[in-house]
Each structure stands twice: as structure tokens, then as C-alpha cells.
Write a protein that binds this DNA or RNA. Structure first.
Lengths: 96, 96
DNA sequence: TATATTTTTGACAAAATTGTCTAAATTTCA
DNA sequence: TGAAATTTAGACAATTTTGTCAAAAATATA
């Protein structure tokens, strides 16, 4: 997901803990150039990065995962006709 | 979305109405080769194709759109931790 | 059957995405 | 201030995705 908001969010957390990009990038197995662009919203952050991010930034994985998915759903589908109806149908389908 | 099931679904509808791929492909502005692969689940069907599909297959757009989105959500996120929680959070965020 | 039509396949080029590297710019701090 | 560390930007190659074409395979029908 390319997102200025989400990128800025994790950048702020990183800076609050004084962790350089170098450390986070290594954990995510990408280079600092890519991480910089992710933080600036110029490259996508993928869902498989969330566990490593949560661990290295020492934040709750569950919250971060939920934040990531919910924001991605909105950015992907906001404005699509019947999106809410589709989500509700999906939820009921899961339960069966 | 690459999906054998969804591809087969639209293929069945198309065959029931005896519409050749040629006609549907033209409506979607793709060639029959691509449509064939979509029906076989080898190439992705994109959400912008749903309106044209519904029209040419003479089926209800709302139902098809809901079916498409709900199945895509499942195929993208099924198995992701906290997916249901994320969806619920997303829904409450929409309402505000 | 044999001809026309439809569907599928595979090869290929174009376009988009991803990842890496280098160096410039910025920030930190001794 | 000046050196070290960090961050950002841009160029580039590698990979993946997308779209097109031609022809083979399968199906329909005269």
C-alpha cells in the first residue's frame, strides 16, 4: 500500500524511539532507500512487513495489522458502489 | 482478481446466453485471448470490467459487483490475522 | 464430412513494478 | 565548524504484469 499517512505514521514512531532507518530496513530486508520511500508514501508497504515493523518499533502487532488492513481496504475500495454491502456479505460468508 | 471460480461463473452465464467471447471481449475492450484466460482464471478480472460484464450478460450489476468484491476480499485477506477485526474497524470508520 | 466459427495456447513486446546502488542533501553531535 | 551518520533522490537493471498477435485446437453447423 502506498500511503503518505501510513508512511508518516511509522516514520513518526521510528523517530520517537530514535531508531535509524538502517535498523528497520535491515529487519524488513530492504534497503534504506526503499524504506525512505515507503515512509514518504512513494513505494508500497506490504502486509508481510507489518510483523517485523511491529516488533522493531515495539508496538502492538494486532493494532498495527488492523490499522494497515482497514486503511488499505478504504484506499482500495472507497467510492466503489456497494462496497459496504459487499463487506457485509463477505462477513456473513465467513461465518458459514 | 485471478479466480477460476469467478471466471467459470461468468463463462457459464455467457454460454447460457450463447454470447461468443468476441462480443464480450469487444465490450470490455480486450481481445478474446485475454477473455479466455480470464474465464480460465489465468488472467485477472478487474473491478472496472464489472459494469460492462453485467450489461452485456444482462445480469444485475449490484449482485455482480457485490459478488466480485466479497470474493476478492476473501481471496486477498483470508488467513490474515485480525482480518475480521480490521473490516469491522473499517466499517465503523466509514460511518463517522 | 468439411467449412466456418469459436476458444485456447504460446510467443512476444510494451509497460509497470521492484530492488539495488551511488551519491547528493540533510541532520546530528563532538 | 567539520566529520560522521542518516535520509533522500535519481539512475538503472531485473522482474513481473499486461496486452497483442498468430496459429493450433476444439466446437458448431451447413
Amino acid at each position: 500500500m502506498k500511503s503518505k499517512d501510513f508512511g508518516n505514521y511509522i516514520k513518526t514512531l521510528r523517530e520517537q524511539k530514535n531508531i535509524p532507518q538502517r535498523i528497520v530496513a535491515h529487519k524488513l530486508d530492504i534497503d534504506t532507500s526503499t524504506l525512505s520511500k515507503i515512509e514518504l508514501g512513494e513505494r508500497p508497504l506490504t502486509i508481510d512487513m507489518i510483523p517485523g515493523l511491529a516488533e522493531i518499533l515495539e508496538i502492538d502487532f494486532k493494532s498495527l495489522q488492523i490499522k494497515f488492513i482497514s486503511e488499505k481496504l478504504l484506499s482500495d475500495y472507497k467510492g466503489q458502489p456497494y462496497f459496504v454491502e459487499a463487506v457485509k456479505k463477505m462477513l456473513t460468508n465467513i461465518k458459514k
